[in-house]
């Protein structure tokens, strides 16, 4: 009876060990994760369904889980020491050895970039490349430097940042495809792109010079805006004066003529009389104020009548 009991106990013990062993094959897949199951080291299946699942326990099967929906980030030329939050600003550390590079026109430039990527093929990612992150980093460095060296400094600094980002992204994706690393590049973003500190002042002065140019032009334009209206004003004044002169001349002429015509009418009534009267009237009007000398036309002898000489001298 007791021997039967021992057998039962043994059975229970073995059975529970077996159960525990079998249960050890339960694993969870979180949402966003994919799991790969290897049987004796050989890839047998992939499980992309989130939740509980079971694989044959160790040592038969093994499971590798990778988050495939997470957008990962690779920093080039700098590193984030502390991420920013609502109450704190992020902290960065620059890495000039990495970021300082040559451009196509043999100038130096500091380029900092962030690369966003995702694992697109978990099998390739896990089983094709020895050091995935390291390989990506080295390929990225090569791609960034190669593309920057393919462009001149001005393009890198300002004119063609977008094009350069696209080119880096395409080149890096091509490299990833060649290595079958299972990574998809989502974006390459150039962060700070600056000339080296040693020449920074000269670069800033160019910006100042550009401003100077604009302000010189603005000054000249304001001069123009001042002088042209003034000229137009002068022109209007000249023309108005001319018009006034014209009107005046015409009006005066009309007045003179009206006067003459009236006199002419009277003259026509009695020509000799009027003529004499007019002459005398004129003399009357002008002679009093004049000094008069009368000369005999036959000789040079001059008889002069100092009619009002004394008076005028005394006065």
């Amino acid at each position: 009876m007791s021997i039967k009991k021992f057998k039962l106990v043994s059975f229970v013990v073995i059975f529970s060990i077996l159960c525990i062993w079998l249960l050890s094959g339960i694993y969870t897949v979180k949402s966003g994760e994919e799991a790969v199951i290897l049987r004796f080291g050989e890839y047998v299946r992939m499980n992309g369904k989130a939740g509980l699942a079971w694989h044959m326990p160790h040592p038969v099967e093994k499971v590798y889980k990778v988050n495939v929906s997470e957008i990962r980030r690779l920093e080039f030329g700098f590193s984030t020491l502390k991420e920013g939050g609502t109450t704190q600003t992020p902290e960065f550390k620059e890495n000039p050895y990495q970021s300082l590079m040559l451009t196509g026109d043999e100038n130096m430039v500091n380029v900092e970039a962030a690369i966003q990527y995702k694992i697109t093929n978990i099998e390739d990612y896990l089983f094709n490349v020895d050091d995935q992150e390291g390989t990506l980093a080295i390929a990225a460095e090569s791609a960034i430097r190669r593309v920057i060296a393919n462009h001149v400094l001005d393009e890198v600094l300002t004119d063609n940042k977008f094009g350069i980002q696209q080119e880096i992204m395409q080149d890096l994706q091509k490299t990833c495809d060649l290595y079958k690393i299972g990574i998809g590049i989502i974006a390459v973003q150039l962060q700070d792109v600056n000339p080296p500190k040693e020449v920074d002042a000269a670069f800033k002065d160019v910006a100042n010079a550009r401003e100077d140019k604009n302000s010189l032009i603005n000054e000249a334009e304001s001069y123009r805006n001042e002088i042209i209206p003034k000229a137009r004003g002068n022109a209007a004044e000249i023309i108005n004066k001319a018009v006034a002169y014209k009107e005046k001349r015409i009006a005066e002429a009309k007045g003179d003529v009206a006067n003459f015509i009236q006199i002419l009418e009277r003259y026509n009534m009695g020509k000799e009389v009027t003529r004499k009267r007019m002459y005398l009237e004129t003399l009357e009007e002008i002679l009093p104020g004049m000094e008069k000398y009368i000369v005999d036309s036959k000789g040079n002898l001059i008889k002069w009548l100092p009619l009002e000489d004394d008076k005028s001298n005394k006065n």
Partner: peptide, 24 residues
């Protein structure tokens, strides 16, 4: 790089003068 930039700056400034003179 410095001299290149200085040249560029000078160019900008003299271009500014040129433009201004033209406008005036």
């Amino acid at each position: 790089m410095k001299t290149e930039r200085e040249r560029a700056a000078k160019t900008y400034r003299s271009e500014g003068k040129e433009e201004a003179q033209k406008i005036r």
